[in-house]
Amino acid sequence: MRFLMTSASEQAADETLYIEMGKFIEELTRSGVLLATGGMELEGSLIRSSGGEITVIDGPFTEAKEAAGGFALIETRSKEEALEVSRRFFKILGDGEGRIQQIFG
């Protein structure tokens, strides 16, 4: 099963976090779980299609507390394993929030 994990943390990344996160990513890659990962713009643009008309609205949309965003595409045996990965991820990242969505096909 593949999952897309996106996250936004409330702390700006410091040296320690970079090192810890680097180790974690290395470990995930090694165990064959992590397929792709990277940083991510927090707000981005919202695209809406309605009645054949496309509207693009640039962020920010909320009063952002978040300081950094990222994504990871992982391959696990179960949703529980995916949750375990994100649990570990947030232990390093600290406060923030994220989303896990299974990916099909």
Binding site: R77, S78, K79, E80, E81, L83, E84
Partner: peptide, 10 residues
């Protein structure tokens, strides 16, 4: 239990 199984497999 699901979480334990996941931890175990890792």
């Amino acid at each position: 239990h699901g979480a334990i199984d996941a931890v175990w497999k890792f």
